[in-house]
Design a protein around this nucleic acid. Structure first.
Lengths: 371, 371
DNA sequence: AGACACCTCACAATCGATTGCGCCATTATT
DNA sequence: AATAATGGCGCAATCGATTGTGAGGTGTCT
């Protein structure tokens, strides 16, 4: 079959029905000024000829691409891929498409790929920043052209942005207090680079919990990772356990390093959670696979993706002040598993302790940044 | 700032330079018929005004959207998200964008979302079929309009398609022979629905390995899962272990069920791999997390994504007969870990045994379907 | 019957970039 | 010196859908 024949257009339908293309267009869009018989005839023929609207032509004319762009560091990480999954679903349900792009945590690539997304005239952009990024000038392209940008997870330390996030401070605070509640008194922290706000907040939530409970803040127990990789987690845990006064609890800024901490401790014959309690962050699938199962802070990835799309839609519909900030804060909760739960009979199914957050509703909300 | 101002177009640049839009267009595209001075002037002004081409307008005129569509069951599974990651990279490097869509393993949703992708006039489609899908008529839309479709992983049982895949038969054959090499004599199989070719091939590879080694094919040790979920894996493993003559090895069609098999066996006090050797499929990250680490068949997810894009590009450039079949087969290998390696000192770092496949090159190849 | 109001639909411009064709002005050719 | 051969650029159509404006026909009301 020579199948390079061109796709059916409204002109084809118009010609066959002896009406004008505008009538076909209006009939298909159920415009009020078209008669019922004409509408039916047009629809019937469209169906018969397998007509499908050309979204490109429509976008050009209406200046609305109905396409969201997503820029993330890596799309094959559990947290991000789930976020994208949620965003895709919310976008589809609202008649939008999703273009993806990854920065590999590299600012240059982030910048280049943002240009491409802009060239596609995306309706809105959803971004999780590259680890490297501390200069946000490359987002000016979108701001200057009135294209909404919604940050998720990793966002700039500024007030005039839209974002969907969790309260990293209180999440970290609760994770740390969870360890304290288990009897830990020397709690270490393996954190991420503090130039990224989320890691700074997790660090300060940890500090705040220690202080509130009158525990010593020992700088030698606070380590800063650059990539939060498995290898780094292993190395940093070694360092902690080599400490003259080793910790009895570790709060890790992600699950990858949390798993490394468990493995490292196990290899030294340290009993978990009796001698060392460990909690991670994200609630990745590996938490349930590792032995003992890793406690973690549940990070609502899919919901974040959906919320980001909903927020972008709200901005586009003018329901939100485009000019000002707006932020949606989603709930997190500590998932206590055997790696930290000293009261739990680990032979039983892992129980789930949900610590409510004092925060914000589910769907949307406008919050003020602290300070 | 009232920032709803319209984006800069070639008309704006043309007016400012007192040349025609066509000259601007040709200058930016380095057309030979434009003078050097004019080119420089145009480029300089474009830079200064922050001009960025409108990809939508360009697509409409040239009839090339430079966009690939990806349809997958779930984008937040390790294998798929890695595949997408590879596809995104290869697409970007060739100047293309990527639109994603998920079917949630539901044929109806798959069909609806394929329409949306078609409406976007994607240049080519990359698909991993929904588990449910056995009727492929909804792909006719693309075939009729000359849009290349490349199947990855799960593909239709037909000859006239393009696909990127692994040799599931030989991969399963090798996985099974690996267990046999470890001394297993009663090997069970937890497989997927055989209406999906890949699971049928894994099953037949397993059977072939048993027969070649003169082992009994016991139907009571061959179970067919519908979702290959963790719960299902648990249930089916229970069933195997309750067998009057329980197996001494299990070959699972994915890692999720492989992990379940390990857990189930451990909960019964069965020694792994001494009493029961287990191997999964995919080489997901969880394989290295579970204790003991799960042996698996390495599935080159990122490479499959890249290969799919490359194949689509080749078709678009006419380097491949669009009319006929074409398939790229990628290499797999068995990753032996402690869950099956009876010779390995499990106290040491997990060794990696690579069994070479007798198959095909890396980049591309045209293979003939068997039968 | 005349005037007005609808109801239906066609015309033509438009979105921004691309491209075949042709025009004008140099420069080369004989 | 007249003509041919370029080089450099503009004109206008085009891609497919949308939409403001207005035209033709029918019906209603007084």
């Amino acid at each position: 079959m020579g199948n390079k024949k061109k796709a059916v257009t409204i002109h084809d339908l118009a010609e066959e029905l002896n009406v004008s293309p505008s009538t076909v267009s209006r009939a298909l869009n159920d415009h009020s000024s078209i008669g019922k018989q004409t509408k039916n005839a047009v629809r019937k023929l469209a169906e018969a000829r397998g007509y499908r609207p050309n979204a490109i032509a429509s976008s050009l004319r209406t200046n609305r691409s109905n396409t969201f762009g997503i820029m993330a560091p890596w799309i094959n990480r559990p947290f991000i891929s789930s976020l994208i999954s949620g965003a895709e679903e919310a976008a589809r349900e609202s008649g939008n498409r999703v273009i993806i792009s990854q920065s590999y945590d590299n600012r240059e690539l982030e910048k280049e790929n943002l240009q491409v997304l802009y060239d596609s005239r995306i309706s809105a952009l959803i971004v999780s920043l590259a680890m490297e990024t501390t200069d946000y000038s490359h987002f000016g392209l979108f701001a200057k052209n009135g294209i909404p940008v919604v940050f998720v997870d990793r966002f700039p330390a500024r007030n005039d942005i839209h974002k969907v996030h969790i309260n990293n401070f209180s999440a970290a605070f609760e994770a740390t207090e969870h360890l304290i509640g288990q009897g830990c008194r020397r709690i270490a922290h393996i954190g991420g680079g503090r130039h990224q706000g989320i890691y700074e907040d997790r660090w300060s939530g940890y500090i705040a919990a220690l202080k509130k409970n009158n525990l010593l803040v020992d700088e030698s127990l606070i380590l800063q990772a650059t990539s939060l990789s498995a290898e780094e987690g292993m190395r940093l845990t070694e360092q902690l356990l080599d400490n003259a006064h080793p910790p009895d609890g570790i709060f890790c800024a992600n699950d990858t390093t949390g798993v490394s901490a468990i493995r490292c401790a196990k290899s030294r014959g340290i009993k978990i959670p009796e001698e060392l309690a460990i909690i991670g962050f994200n609630d990745d699938p590996i938490c349930e696979i590792i032995d003992p199962p890793l406690s973690s802070v549940h990070h609502p990835a899919i919901e974040m993706g959906k919320a980001a799309v909903r927020q972008a839609l709200a901005i586009l519909q003018g329901n939100l002040e485009t000019e000002s900030e707006s932020s949606v804060t989603l709930d997190t909760y500590v998932v206590a598993r055997a790696s930290s739960d000293r009261k739990m009979d680990s032979a039983l199914t892992a129980g789930i302790v949900t610590l409510e957050e004092e925060n914000v509703p589910d769907n949307s909300s406008a919050g003020k940044k602290k300070k």
